[in-house]
């Protein structure tokens, strides 16, 4: 049986006005965790909102699992209000997660709260056999950057509003860097518009990219079919893959990005 149960919050740290890191005890029944996987978490024991919230893992060790939650609506707000020592109900890890492949040159791209699972990834990528470059983009103040800074060769930081950081899109750095560096694998998570541009750029350059996608979910285990990712099927057709179960990681070469 897979894990669906309770775990105690052991640490909590607000790193932005609306972003909180919550660490829980790693329960044995959770089994192996892969970066890029998520847990489906009950926002409140009171049962409202009704559906659980899928939150990706932003770090883990033998004793704890950490989530970095951006408060966006009623569910994430309730999640963020739990205190250290309280227990939360959750199931997981869920989804496929990233494929960690052996590669000499690796690029990691994160945008907004999409930086959270990339932190979980870089902490678990084999060192020092690969050289890792990182591009992170934020609307306001950058966060979670320390984990990347200590593990990467090159780091580009973008912010739309804060001076001292690069302005513009993360794809600008991507387009510069792929001219001079032969990346063997790229990992990316962020807003849909960013992932669309990243996939387009890398597909054209023939560089493999693993995209960690996002969608509103209900069951989180592939039964209810409310979260989909449009993917290629044969040469001319498409299929609607299950974001939660077949993903949330899809290769850039298999995703079909519709213009709205």
């Amino acid at each position: 049986m897979r894990f669906d149960g309770f775990s105690k919050i052991v640490d909590k740290d607000w790193i932005q006005d609306d972003v909180v890191m919550i660490s829980i005890e790693r329960v044995a029944e959770m089994g192996e965790i892969i970066p890029g996987q998520f847990f489906n978490i009950q926002a409140s024991a009171a049962g409202y909102p009704m559906l659980r919230r899928p939150i990706s893992v932003s770090g883990y060790d033998e004793k704890t699992v950490t989530f970095t939650v951006k408060v966006l609506g009623a569910g994430t707000k309730q999640l963020s209000e739990h205190r250290v020592g309280e227990v939360i109900k959750l199931m997981g890890p869920l989804g496929n997660g990233f494929e960690r492949v052996k590669a000499k040159k690796v690029l990691i791209i994160g945008g907004g709260i999409g930086v959270a699972p990339m932190k979980g990834l870089i902490e678990k990528l084999e060192q020092p056999s690969s050289e890792i470059d990182v591009i992170l983009g934020f609307k306001d103040h950058p966060y979670l950057t320390d984990s990347f800074r200590t593990r990467c060769q090159r780091l580009a930081l973008f912010s739309e509003t804060i001076s001292g950081f690069r302005k513009g899109y993360v794809t600008e750095a991507l387009e510069e860097w792929i001219k001079t560096t032969a990346y063997e694998m790229v990992y990316a998570c962020g807003p849909l518009a960013m992932l669309r541009r990243v996939a387009k750029t890398l597909n054209e350059a023939g560089v493999p990219v693993q995209l960690l996608m996002e969608e509103k979910m209900a069951c989180g285990i592939g039964a209810c079919l409310v979260c989909t990712c449009k993917t290629k099927k044969d040469d001319f057709n498409f299929k609607l893959s299950r974001m939660c179960k077949d993903g949330p990681m899809f290769y850039g070469s298999e995703v079909i990005f519709d213009e709205n």
Partner: peptide, 23 residues
């Protein structure tokens, strides 16, 4: 059947509206 494209769920007070389309 592949079912409906686009958003298939809207969460509502103590409920949800689905539009899966018989996938």
């Amino acid at each position: 059947r592949e079912g409906n494209e686009g958003v298939r769920i809207a969460e509502t007070p103590m409920g949800m509206i689905n539009s899966v389309g018989l996938q």
